[in-house]
């Protein structure tokens, strides 16, 4: 765990990582996780997102939900930048196991090997796993 940082007003700034593990549709985890990230942005914490397992599909380009009567919320990931959420990590093994490459994602990401992702998690104060 990192030492807690203070912001300019003396408030606590912790390292929050949101770990996205599930496919974007089929369950509500991905959508509601994204809602947490958007709300949390107002708290000016040190935020990062990790995409592992089927979670890598959440940021895949070209999502089309017209056949399943659900909203395609993937454009929202592009808005994260406006909320100063810019640290997005994809686990390399999860990506490759699913035949994906960095070019398949609709936002810029940093691809990390499993061990590097574990090290990144080790640095966090709070890990919210969805």
């Amino acid at each position: 765990m990192s030492d807690e940082m203070m912001d300019e007003e003396g408030g606590v700034v912790k390292k929050f990582m949101y770990v996205n593990r599930k496919a974007p549709y089929g369950t509500i985890y991905a959508l509601e996780s994204l809602e947490v990230v958007l709300i949390a942005a107002a708290f000016e914490q040190d935020v990062s997102l990790a995409f592992i397992d089927d979670g890598v599909y959440q940021i895949k380009k070209g999502q089309d939900t017209s056949g399943i009567d659900m909203k395609n919320f993937s454009p929202t990931y592009r808005a994260l930048e406006m909320y100063d959420v810019e640290k997005l990590y994809v686990e390399k093994e999860s990506m490759e196991e699913r035949g994906l490459t960095e070019e398949d994602f609709l936002v810029p990401v940093e691809v990390l090997g499993r061990q590097d992702m574990a090290d990144m998690m080790e640095e966090q104060d709070i890990i919210l796993s969805f």
Partner: peptide, 15 residues
């Protein structure tokens, strides 16, 4: 609201 979850993260020693 969800702010209560983030606040819990900030104010607790462990979440």
């Amino acid at each position: 609201g969800l702010g209560q979850l983030i606040e819990a993260g900030i104010q607790s020693d462990r979440l």
